[in-house]
Design a protein around this nucleic acid. Sequence first.
DNA 1: CGCACCGGGTTCTGCCATCTGC
DNA 2: GCAGATGGCAGAACCCGGTGCG
Length: 386
Amino acid sequence: MAVAPGVRALLSLHQSATWQHSFGLIKVLLRATCLPRRLCSAPTGGDETKPPVNTENESLLENLNLMGVDVKMARQRQPGVLRKAFTNEKGLAQFLQGKGASRRVIASIISRYPRAITRSISHLEQRWELWRNIFKTDSEIVTILERSPESFFRSSDNWNLEKNIAFLTSLGLNTKDLHRLLTTAPRTFSNSLELNKQMVEFLEDVCAELGGNNPEQFVRSVISRNLYILIRSIKRVKTNIDNLRASLELSDSELLALLQGPGAEILDLSNEYLKKNFNSLQQKMASLGCEKADIKKLIISYPMVLYIGPDTLSSKLDCLLAGGITMQQILEKPKVLDYSTQNITARLEELQRVGYDFQKNGINILDSSRKRFDAKIEKLSVSADE
DNA sequence: CGCACCGGGTTCTGCCATCTGC
DNA sequence: GCAGATGGCAGAACCCGGTGCG
């Protein structure tokens, strides 16, 4: 999964004369990449002199307005960019247009992440090339940019990006994993290599401390199950792990199994939220007559239950219980909690209509796709008519 | 054939705080 | 003291279908 060979050469070129450090380069770039007439904004009347501080670049504002950028929003987000003497809004717009972005999308990107207009064309080309190592088409990238401009533009360090790709690949993540990762949590790739390494090392340590014998596999498993893990702080993940262990009184092997299994999904919840949900779950279940062991069993077999907010969970449980389902059945088939309260309510009504017997048939029917559920109901209705 | 088990797909940014380098 | 770079935070589920087994 090596990065395209040409990219490295391009990168080192760029490194030796960066946008920020060479005014000469800026001028060359501007001449090369912008339209002839007022390529890029310069302060009114200003020559090469810096504009007075706290003064916005008028011609830049004009350009942005013409491009449909929400200048008010841009000012609110990154006021400093509007004061810059030299920017590359037109070059950026042309570049993105060439990749298939619409005028509206380009304006939206700049409005939400103004610093994008400080990136040079060569920087953009290099970065795009690196993303293209993972995405098959430009339009996929445009979609991500529209969704999260910051993920693409926040860092000016293409070398770091390249190193990140190499690092993540070295963990044994395949192309498909990287694709999912960059699609879902693009910020991961703008993290410093060091930060990503620290999280990986932390996870490896967790695995080793719990007696796991394959830390690399553990890390792959956690990342694959929770694509957001690398954009969380170690503190957050560590606190959640510690809290889970303490509140469930888990042994090392139980915790290890939980973390590399379904538990990975809840590691990135905010600490307070996880704690709050655990407490309210505990309270709710106690009020329904559950033992401590029941709670532990539920969370180990279905940690996603801790994802559900107190109100949602409470109404979901009430709804199931009111429909004639027992807590014991829910504990056996917790996946029914996956479905929305609305969905569950509607299904319970339909099932009641055809006289479905949960005691006899179990509750698995609630955990099925819409298609399968409807087919089942259809069949039950027919046989009831006979 | 019907069912249960199980894993996968979708998704998650936009703001603020803190440093750093000029 | 600036703008840039980067870390970190809050927010909060739902649904589908392949497959293998009885």
